[in-house]
Amino acid sequence: MAPLFRRRANSLAVVILVGILALLVAISVFAYVVYRSPYQTDVGYAPEQPVPFSHQHHVGGLGLDCRYCHSGVETSDFAGIPPTLTCMTCHSQEWTNAEMLAPVRQSLTTETPLSWTRVHDLADYVYFSHRAHVNNGVGCESCHGRVDKMPMTVQKAPLTMKWCLSCHRNPAPNLRPLDEITSMGYSPATDGASGQMLMQRYRIHPDTLKECATCHR
């Protein structure tokens, strides 16, 4: 009786088995790359807003401190979206007839808040606190990037758990002294106080930063 399989089938079987394995690996790698890509993390996300507000103009050009508008950042978990009155502090006198500011004036007269589109949105199971970060040496720029160079607000960091942990595991190289928290263009690695010294000053214990309940409750 002739054999059911020819001799060649042996090697063919190996090729097929290895091929299936390689395909699985390729699919996994592809899925991971997509998962970490801007397509999934929203890096580069710069949605259209009701008013084309430019951080570049207000921070880079005028030199306003972040806290001038985001006044809750040191005292609450949320940095705070300024109320229309904050815009009007200057714009009651400046650019009073500008077409692009019409929604701001309308918001003031009708007492209806402007509805901005949120750029940085963490998953609901993450409990992020601005207060905990800016009072302990993490600067605005570390997560938000050079907002003083953003005509439109854009998401710079991937906001993945891996990204959070990269700093929670080793915070020292990212720490700034308190008077540089809102500075733009400050380099924690080369400017000012050393990370180890700041770790002591802020009494940061890296072990507690890695516990699940630090971010997930």
Binding site: I81, T112, P113, A123, D124, Y125
Partner: peptide
């Protein structure tokens, strides 16, 4: 979806509340 739970985050829109906020 766990990343978008049935709770209001700060300033999240709340349809049918005053000003939907």
């Amino acid at each position: 979806h766990m990343e978008d739970q049935a709770k209001y985050e700060t300033f999240e829109a709340a349809p049918e509340w005053a000003d939907d906020q």
